[in-house]
Design a binder for these strands. Structure first.
Ligand SMILES: [Zn+2]
Ligand SMILES: [Zn+2]
Lengths: 423, 423
DNA sequence: TAATGGGTGCACT
DNA sequence: AAGTGCACCCATT
């Protein structure tokens, strides 16, 4: 039974309030809320399990995450920065940089000098995922804090981080995830469209989380005893030494990690999908954001999986191990894969998992959010035309100087604007 | 026998050329050279030995160093940043920040917002020490890259880093260093003047390096075999994995670290001191850079050590173990301790150590540099009056807009100017 | 261990 | 003055 208070998504003051995913599409379309709570979240027994779980979700989105900051009670993720001098090989090239030169007036002479220490565009992406351990709930909460990106989103199966991620999947014998990512790699390398179904869930998070073998461990947390102590006297005490103070790891009688052990939790997903899809942007399915790489060139729109059958020549991938039909037999027809110029709709579903055998306090009546919304650039001004992608990338277009209606800027927006201007 | 070529310090193109410390004062006064090569340097058997060695040198200068960046062939040190919200307790307060507010014009309204992500002044200090392992010389080279600071220099015996440093000294039974730092702490806590003699050497580096028990290990480096491989093809190859690729650690048959083992190297120091002191600035010995802390308030100028005898009441320090006379019997009378508003002179000495029993290629004919120069703010324009400290701190005064003669800017200067303007 | 925000040392890449 | 991934910090509320 979920007793959390749900706030009115039309309330202007609810940016940091827990929002029922049922209403999150409304909240997002209200242009004010950028906090997207992902729910449910596995009961990680260690914070190191969070990143692989998120990678399974966001790699298919073309988002490579890294840890920006972490301690034992918090992990902040962001998009991985590009490598500056990277040759454009099999790696998707970043969009062209803005002018890398700048004029330096040294008095009587003006010198044009290459900007050596320019921070790559990629590193300015405001996208964040915040995982915090809630002592009261005794579980981790995952919140997407800024769903827009300052760069294109391209899945790169050749990145080192992805290779490591894939290797861990193999070490853990995570056959379902391996199969899906093999499929994802195959489609990427052959410039095939990436359907949302390759995402953890074509409509959200929860379902495919199970099939990805990212589990909700059916372990009973200790009740009645709170071994946590974040305060030192009356002040906050943070872990003092390395590899110490891992209270939440002691919370479960887990003999294995959440990411390596499947549960018996049979979530009946892909049922009762109440697709409250809401579009308030141009449904331009032909907009192309990938410069010549072809990854997201073909809007998936109404493409059914049967179209994949055209691809029969697989490279080094063991296609014999890939069962495509199982993946694409699910409903995703109304979800556009690449509609990232304008805010994607949030599809919210209400999962009532009667088969859930886990602790009802944590797992029952959970909801999930279609993370296709994470692909979107926020609708900074719904009344205007969709802002140009290049402008957002290069001209600080989120500032009020760039067609952003100031009334539509909340405090979080302002914070970013200020930071951009300061950098 | 040192066969290194020495360059003409008056040459405009020698910024990155090895400079004989004999000529470094001339080179520095030429306003072009900011690279101060420290020589000799112990043959560190591990890069972790470098920081303690430098701490022994720079703590007495009021400089607390941290590692900015490191790999197995390079360690870059800089000044430790201040703690942001630190209350001004027994810690020397940083100079007041510039305005921490900024106006944000959001169109029709102007919002004044606290700058949240401001970098503390302390972290902008350009002072750097670069230690690089030279494969050709098979030894570490230490270069001070920017001898000015953006902040006051105050030795803080209460800092955590210093306590750790001191603890390591005790673990290593480094009695000489312990004695000297006890003395330094005592003088600091009692607002007594800090003579240059408490520095590793009152006139330079080499001599006190021995008495500080930082040693030049009398170990014969392997000759003829070069186990190093920095190049991958013809490009620089960086270490690939953690805790691997420590080629220089294999270079010596060392059974102990350089910082813990004294050598038999009897450098006859404090002889033949040819004090080529050069002043081209106002010798204002009364300039006070310490806001009320009193540490460096009293210019030491012509103060002899006998003046310390006035202090007889030592707090918790075991003064019975401190032999002051041995320290201050050395000549340092012409060195001002706190003349940091203007460039300090560089005193260069020529040490000819006939008693050196170590490898002549490395240790004979070595020189050392008076690191009192490291206290100075560079003479950005010798023809002008001394630039105001506040201006240097807060108004990017190293830019040509701030009284820097553009002819006096070399390429490295320009690089920095650009970076400052970008921040 | 309340929750949440940010700074920064420093080795990896 | 490699940039940045990450963790050890500290801040305010
Ligand atoms: Zn991003
Ligand atoms: Zn400094």
């Amino acid at each position: 039974m979920d007793t959390r208070k749900q706030s009115n998504p039309n309330d202007d003051d609810n940016e940091k309030t827990l929002i029922n995913p049922q209403n999150i599409s409304i909240a997002l379309n209200d242009k004010q809320n950028k906090l997207i709570h992902l729910d449910p979240v596995p009961d990680f027994s260690d914070k190191t399990e969070i990143k692989p779980w998120l990678q399974k979700i966001f790699y298919p989105q073309g988002i490579e995450i890294v840890i920006e900051r972490s301690d034992n009670f918090k992990v902040i993720f962001k998009c991985k920065a590009t490598k500056r001098g990277k040759k454009h090989g099999n790696v998707a090239p970043p969009l062209p940089e803005p002018t890398t030169e700048e004029e330096v007036n040294t008095g009587s002479t003006t010198t044009v000098k290459k900007k050596k220490r320019s921070i790559s565009r990629f590193n300015r992406c405001p996208f964040r995922i915040r995982a915090t351990f809630s002592i009261k709930r005794k579980k981790w909460q995952v919140v997407v804090m800024n769903s827009m990106h300052s760069h294109e989103l391209v899945f790169n199966p050749d990145s080192d981080d992805y290779k490591k991620f894939k290797m861990v999947l193999k070490e853990n014998n995570d056959v379902d995830a391996i199969k899906k990512f093999d499929e994802l790699e195959y489609r990427r390398r052959n410039n095939l469209p990436i359907p949302q179904a390759i995402m953890p869930c074509d409509c959200g998070l929860t379902s495919e989380i199970r099939s990805f073998n990212v589990v909700l461990p059916n372990i009973n947390p200790r009740k009645g005893s709170n071994n946590y102590s974040r305060s030192n006297g009356n002040k906050i005490k943070k872990p003092i030494k390395k590899n110490s103070d891992k209270p939440f790891a002691l919370q479960f009688d887990s003999s294995s990690t959440a990411s390596s052990t499947p549960t018996n939790n049979n979530i009946s997903h892909h049922n009762d999908h109440n697709q409250n899809q809401t579009h308030n942007h141009n449904n331009n399915n032909n907009t192309n954001i990938n410069n010549g790489m072809g990854f997201l060139d073909d809007p998936f729109a109404s493409t059914e999986f049967s179209s994949l059958n055209n691809a029969t020549t697989a490279p080094a991938i063991d296609l014999n191990e890939i069962d495509f039909t199982d993946i694409f037999s699910k409903s995703f027809s109304n979800v556009t894969a690449t509609d990232i110029y304008a805010p994607s709709p949030l599809l919210s579903y209400n999962h009532t998992d009667d088969t859930n055998t886990n602790d009802g306090d944590i797992l029952s009546n959970t909801y999930h959010v279609d993370i296709s919304s994470l692909l979107s650039i926020p609708n900074v001004d719904a009344d205007n035309t969709t802002p140009e992608f290049d402008k957002i990338l290069y001209t600080k277009s989120v500032t009020p100087d760039n067609n952003v209606n100031e009334q539509d800027i909340n405090k979080d927006d302002l914070h970013w604007i200020i930071n951009f201007d300061n950098e």
